[in-house]
Amino acid sequence: MSSFKRTALLLTAPASLVAIALYALPIVQVLALSVTEPTLGWANYRDLFSNGAVGRVVMTTLKVSVLTTLLTVAASYTVALAMLHMARGWRRIAFFLLLVPFWISVLVRAFSWITILRREGVLNRLLLDVGALSTPLELVYNTLGVTIGMVHYMIPFATLLLYANLSDIDRRLMQAARSLGARPATVFWRVWLPLSVPGLALATLFVFVFALGFFVTPALLGGGKTLMIAEYISVQVSTTARWDLATSLSTMLLVVVGALFFIATRSPALRAAFTARPPP
């Protein structure tokens, strides 16, 4: 090995050490604890599947995650596609409206929604004042509030991802379709949509994985009533100190996320999206 390559490898050492000692090993310990705490064996996982509370949390998590993913990807695709067709000036305004929520703290976003949606909140006040309602609506501290907050959180991210992916599509194909007399709707259904599949698959994967493990927004907008898996794990850590439950649930979550990404890298459409090239 040349001294140049040796120096280069040496440069990778500090970050590698930190990542192994302070990321990989602690997580491996969580996996290990799930089969050793309190006794060696698979008992924790058996308990997990017979635990009614865990079952309800998993169902809530899946319901909210699927709903969030569908709404987010549909909305993000609409925005990304429209942005591709905008004139420069309008597109800059659109980017601004997208990037402010993208960069602002997730806590500020959750707080805004609480202010708007709670019983005495801005929206209920407004609807009561104009006489559209006689009793305030329950808009937050339930599944509706969590879904609104999560969709709002995910759209900027998914739109940026889709925009980057759709920008790579060869626009001459749409020009060709139009010059051959295709109507705008036909161009969309027969040209844009099929070519968007890799980007849409990538956005769906990322949004779904983020939603599965999301903590902040469900915890604040769910108000303890809509309990998702990350918040449930946090309760086991901070309140009840049930390490058996916390570690086995964490392991399950990690396995599911890992499996989703493994399947994703096998599928040709997603591999194409990862490498940002349309499939052959």
Binding site: T12, S16, P26, V30, L212, G213, A230, S250, L253, L254
Partner: peptide, 28 residues
């Protein structure tokens, strides 16, 4: 192969749900 494996590990906090890392670090 070594740098590319480590690269995957270094990037994994982007994907791994932070609550799993929380459980790990509270313990450590």
């Amino acid at each position: 192969w070594w740098p590319s494996c480590l690269r995957v590990l270094l990037l994994s906090p982007l994907i791994v749900p932070p609550m799993i890392y929380t459980v790990a670090m509270v313990k450590l």
